[in-house]
Lab assay of single mutants.
Amino acid sequence: MATKAVCVLKGDGPVQGIINFEQKESNGPVKVWGSIKGLTEGLHGFHVHEFGDNTAGCTSAGPHFNPLSRKHGGPKDEERHVGDLGNVTADKDGVADVSIEDSVISLSGDHCIIGRTLVVHEKADDLGKGGNEESTKTGNAGSRLACGVIGIAQ
């Protein structure tokens, strides 16, 4: 089992970053940390998408990683996509320092995120509470600013 993974985020604009993942036990939580720069100040949706395909930019990554066919939600919700990591918060300089621990994603097994795409979005994720159909699919997080395929790390 891989215990570490990394993702280099890039987009068409100024947004870029490096996100690290570490899972010490196969059924334990995954620590997610790193930094994203070039964002507007505020909240930005942060999700693992189904495919590791960036051939047409971030759009070819498909929908959120959702092997259990659930509705979109927040990272602490029972009803959520596996890939729903909530929001990252950018400061006035456009930098989001990421520090998350998640017990639904994994670096092995059915919820493995390796080979899938991590995406940072234009807007805040409403965590499935926006009151419309799009909220239950995407959290109304808007366009995909930057993305990268999650790969095994040393």
Rank of each mutant, 00 (worst) to 15 (best):
S99E: 15
D93C: 08
K137L: 14
L9H: 03
V119Y: 02
F65G: 08
G94T: 02
K129C: 12
S99Q: 12
V88R: 00
G139L: 06
N54C: 15
T136V: 12
V104G: 11
G142V: 07
N140L: 10
K92W: 07
P29S: 14
E25R: 04
Q16D: 15
S106H: 04
N54P: 11
H121A: 10
R144S: 14
K123Y: 11
N66C: 09
V48I: 15
P29Y: 03
D125H: 08
L118A: 03
V15Q: 06
K24Y: 10
A61Y: 15
D91P: 01
E101W: 06
K37E: 15
S60N: 09
G142D: 06
T117E: 12
V104W: 08
A2L: 05
K4F: 11
G139H: 04
G17P: 01
A56Q: 09
A124N: 11
S135A: 04
R70M: 09
L68W: 04
L39P: 05
G62E: 14
G13A: 09
L118H: 01
D77S: 10
S143N: 11
S26Y: 15
R116P: 04
D102C: 12
V82E: 01
V15E: 15
G73S: 06
S135L: 03
S26M: 06
G17W: 03
R80G: 06
D77H: 08
E101Y: 05
L85N: 01
H111V: 04
I150K: 00
V88W: 01
H72K: 05
T3R: 12
H64N: 15
G13D: 11
A61P: 14
K123H: 08
V48M: 02
I150T: 03
E134R: 00
K92S: 09
N27W: 09
F46C: 07
E134I: 05
G128K: 06
I36M: 05
G74D: 03
T3L: 12
N20G: 07
W33F: 08
A5H: 00
G151Y: 11
E79N: 10
T55P: 05
F21V: 01
D102P: 01
A5F: 02
H121K: 14
G17D: 03
I114F: 04
F21Y: 04
K71I: 08
V48E: 00
I152C: 09
S108P: 01
G142K: 06
W33C: 14
H47R: 11
K31C: 03
A146P: 03
A61I: 14
V8Y: 13
L107S: 02
G83A: 10
C7E: 04
K71H: 04
P75R: 11
G109H: 01
C112L: 01
A2I: 09
V149F: 03
C7S: 09
I36W: 00
T89G: 11
C112Q: 06
C58F: 14
R70L: 14
V119N: 02
V95C: 12
D93G: 11
K129N: 10
C147F: 11
H72Q: 10
G86Y: 00
R144M: 09
N66W: 03
H47G: 06
H44R: 01
D91R: 03
T59E: 05
I36P: 04
V82Q: 00
E22I: 13
N140W: 05
E50L: 05
G73C: 10
P14E: 12
I152Y: 08
A124G: 11
H49F: 15
A5M: 00
H44G: 01
I114S: 01
N132C: 12
I113T: 05
G17V: 07
F51W: 02
T40E: 09
K76R: 13
L43V: 15
G115L: 01
K4C: 11
G109P: 01
K31S: 12
G128F: 11
D53C: 15
G128A: 06
N54E: 10
K76A: 10
N27H: 10
E122M: 08
G34N: 00
N132L: 13
S106D: 06
W33H: 04
G17N: 01
C7I: 00
G109L: 00
G11K: 02
P14A: 13
T117P: 04
A61M: 01
A124K: 09
D97H: 07
D77V: 10
L68C: 03
S69F: 14
R80W: 06
T117K: 10
K123M: 10
I18H: 03
C112W: 04
H44P: 01
P14G: 15
K71Y: 05
A141K: 07
S106A: 09
V15M: 01
S108L: 10
T55A: 14
T136C: 11
D53G: 10
G74V: 15
Q16V: 11
P63G: 12
I100Q: 06
I105N: 07
V95I: 12
C147T: 15
A5Y: 03
K24W: 06
G42E: 00
T138L: 15
G17L: 02
L85T: 02
K129F: 09
G109A: 05
A90Q: 00
C7M: 00
D125V: 09
